[in-house]
């Protein structure tokens, strides 16, 4: 293994890593803004056209490969007249994908809140909407964290697929260097280490966040008793 080459290639790999970080974090954030509220509303509305639309959307997202979703965004967005550069096409595809999973994350967290929380809020005279806003959602949010962290690392890995539409994220950058230098062992090792490091950092952040928020929950529970 030629470590000198890895160091030499870093100035070209690190921008790729930075793009991967941007793609996954921006994608995660926009998808959270769309997916989590939809999931919360979906948990409130079990019937009707809204539930059917959301369920169909989630089914499409979970039933098709991310690669197909990327191709769909790549071919269909220009047809609607939108001229986006590959980065934003990539963001659209990642958001479409991740929001679907986040709907399910929000729903599962909402369902895990025991009924008596609703009853307690009603007993305090809170209307349904206020109860949701002040009692249920604040308790459901921390419960979403582990699943969201998982989703974040899935998104990091999914972003590698954007290499097929020429987004120069980490995998594409490494591939470009391989095709010029044929130093594939070095580049494969370097990108694997960078991916693992980023995913591990995200997982650690999630563990920390979870510990902090569950610490607060048990503290609150004690003070209530």
């Amino acid at each position: 293994m030629d470590f000198g080459f890895i160091i030499e290639a870093m100035p070209r790999l690190l921008p790729g890593l930075w793009l991967t970080v941007q793609l996954s974090l921006v994608g995660l954030a926009i998808a959270a803004l769309i997916g989590l509220p939809l999931g919360v509303i979906r948990s409130e509305r079990d019937r009707g056209i809204f539930a059917i639309v959301i369920d169909t959307y989630v089914f499409v997202v979970r039933g098709t490969p991310i690669l197909v979703q990327v191709y769909a965004a790549f071919f269909l967005l220009p047809m609607t007249g939108l001229r986006l550069d590959p980065f934003w096409i990539g963001i659209v595809a990642l958001v479409f994908n991740s929001a679907g999973y986040q709907v399910e994350i929000a729903r599962a967290a909402m369902r895990s809140i025991p009924r008596d929380q609703w009853e307690g809020a009603a007993a305090l005279g809170l209307k349904r909407w206020r109860a949701l806003q002040l009692v249920i959602v604040p308790q459901a949010l921390p419960r979403m964290l582990p699943a969201l962290a998982n989703e974040a690392s899935n998104l990091v890995k999914a972003s590698s697929v954007l290499s097929v539409i020429a987004v120069f994220e980490l995998h594409k950058s490494a591939n470009a260097i391989i095709s010029q230098s044929f130093k594939f062992l070095e580049m494969l090792a370097a990108q694997a280490v960078l991916y693992v490091a980023f995913v591990l950092a995200l997982t650690q952040l999630a563990v920390w966040l979870e510990r902090r928020s569950t610490g607060r929950i048990s503290h609150d529970a004690q003070s209530v008793r």
């Binding site: 995998h171 591939n175 494969l188």
Partner: peptide
């Protein structure tokens, strides 16, 4: 921790 696409490259090249 590593995307499947990278695993495919690894097996493909190595």
């Amino acid at each position: 921790g590593v995307p499947p696409l990278v695993h495919i490259s690894i097996v493909y090249f190595l």
